[in-house]
């Protein structure tokens, strides 16, 4: 886990780093960050508690505890990663642990949009390919260079394409993944929409 946390800002076009593989389908956000850690008014201290219960159960042999995986920044997962609760605390815990990109077979929807919102690109690959990468990564260290513009990844031995929605890719390349500024630009359109909506007129009190 990195001692100092610097959030991503602006355009994201390249992510380089060591991979960490986590095997399992349907890994939910309760497992990524158990609910008791949601008792906080900021995200600052979440990094150390990522996968807390799974790690305790495995007594040091969880992939996030292995010595060779420390300082990894690219997480390799299987299917439906991040299902369940909408807690942004889950990707916030991952990013504070050091994760800057995730490659998986598939992602749960709210988790995926939370990752975009905080600057973690999520890529998909077919099941077999993910399994091969995980197998390779478990036997030896895998240092990947991800090029977002070309949706590709390469290492010393491997070279492969990654899948990412075109719209999501554009957001990272332009820096618009941090949506607030873009949404604020349309302030007058929002005002107009507010006045147009039928139900706004129905209610005197709200």
């Amino acid at each position: 886990m990195k001692a100092e946390f610097t959030p991503p800002i602006g355009k994201i076009s390249q992510i380089t780093g060591k991979c960490i593989s986590l095997i399992g389908n349907d890994i939910d956000t309760d497992r990524i960050i158990p609910a008791r850690f949601l008792k906080c008014v900021n995200f600052d201290s979440l990094g150390k508690s990522v996968f807390e219960d799974d790690r305790k159960t495995l007594k040091g042999s969880h992939t996030f505890d292995l010595k060779e995986n420390q300082n990894s920044s690219i997480l390799i997962v299987n299917s439906n990663f991040g299902c369940g609760s909408s807690r942004e605390h889950a990707p916030q815990a991952l990013i504070r642990w050091g994760i800057r990109a995730i490659i998986g077979e598939s992602f749960a929807e709210i988790f995926y949009s939370n990752c975009i919102a905080i600057g973690i690109p999520c890529f998909t690959l077919p099941k077999k390919l993910i399994q091969n990468i995980q197998k390779y990564n478990i036997s030896k260290s895998l240092f990947l260079e991800i090029d977002l513009k070309n949706s590709s990844a390469k290492s010393k031995d491997l070279n492969f394409n990654l899948e990412i929605k075109e719209s999501t890719k554009k957001m990272f390349l332009s820096g618009e993944w941090d949506a607030t500024a873009t949404l604020l630009e349309n302030s007058s359109l929002v005002e107009r929409k507010f006045k147009e909506l039928p139900y706004i007129k129905f209610s005197d009190e709200i």
Binding site: H89, I110, A117
Partner: peptide
């Protein structure tokens, strides 16, 4: 929605 979207 997540917290960043709550902010938005």
């Amino acid at each position: 929605i997540g917290t960043s979207q709550v902010r938005d």
